[in-house]
């Protein structure tokens, strides 16, 4: 079973993040850049499937040159190889363009399953896997908290819903997306980190993929950021130590707010 895992390099969500003043795209210079947090769960799920069914795991990233760091990190968990789509013209692309680029790159690869995070840590659009399903005409098995592959074709997921789950079935090829409820990602071993340095990484430009540069990038985006600002800080509230009456004081506060 051959699997392609989609991995995006994002700013660390535990640190301060912002947009760039000049072109209002995500600032990828400040702070630490990390693997999209849910994408680690996608890698783990692909590795588990490989362990059970054999085959190859390929990491696919669309991003600037420095995304190679993220690719090496991903490879150190255990995937076999990587594809990096990088082209200056991609900067500022919206999800529509990114999905077109990823679809074109997948056209060059052989896969039974594509596995992605359910949403990226920075954009949190949560639509890219569904858009790939639309573009490639393959089944969408998205929002999984559990994945089962039966025989070699039928794939079943538990799709997480507000109050439980839906059982969704499809045959491969299909695109799966995962939440953090699905597994516990492994840590890269020392050996894994050493091996990752030697694993093949193939780099594609837009012209390698037959995607025209004027269909992607900031100027071709189908939506535009007009302005942005920091959220106004909340005015400091009241903080009281519990001196045996903390619970009562809390309720008195709720009463002043007409909540009780």
């Amino acid at each position: 079973m051959n699997i392609v895992v989609l991995v995006k390099q994002v700013p660390d969500s535990g640190l301060e993040r912002n947009l760039r003043q000049d072109d209002k795209t995500v600032d990828r210079d400040a702070g630490n850049l990390v693997i999209g947090e849910l994408d680690e769960y996608a890698i783990e799920e692909a590795l588990k499937l490989k362990e059970a069914h054999g085959g190859e795991v390929t990491v696919l990233t669309v991003g600037p040159e420095k995304a190679t760091e993220t690719i090496r990190k991903a490879l150190s968990m255990g995937p076999d190889k990587a594809v990096h789509v990088s082209d200056p013209a991609i900067h500022g692309s919206d999800t529509v363009a990114t999905s077109a680029i990823i679809a074109a790159a997948l056209g060059k690869l052989e896969y039974d399953l594509v596995i992605a995070g359910a949403e990226s840590t920075d954009g949190q659009t949560g639509a890219l896997p569904a858009m790939l399903s639309e573009r490639l005409g393959i089944a969408q098995l998205t929002g999984a908290r559990k994945l089962t592959v039966d025989g070699d074709k039928l794939t079943t997921i538990e799709r997480q819903t507000d109050d439980g789950y839906e059982v969704i079935e499809a045959t491969t090829p299909a695109i799966v997306s995962v939440w953090d409820t699905i597994n516990e990602p492994r840590y890269p071993s020392f050996k894994g980190i050493m091996q990752a340095k030697k694993k093949p990484v193939e780099t594609y430009s837009l012209s390698d993929l037959g995607v025209s540069a004027d269909q992607v990038g900031l100027d071709s985006a189908w939506s535009e950021v007009l302005e942005f600002s920091g959220r106004p800080p909340k005015g400091a509230g009241v903080k009281v130590p519990d001196e045996g009456d903390g619970g009562s004081k809390l309720v008195e506060f709720l009463a002043t707010q007409k909540i009780v």
Binding site: K234, G237, K239, V240, P241, G246, G247, S248, V251, V260
Partner: peptide, 21 residues
């Protein structure tokens, strides 16, 4: 973020608040 915060042990504060409500 809190408009009202109690610095204390939840095992004391929560039962008292529940009872008062």
């Amino acid at each position: 973020l809190a408009d009202f915060g109690v610095v204390g042990d939840l095992f004391k504060v929560v039962p008292q608040a529940t009872e008062a409500i």
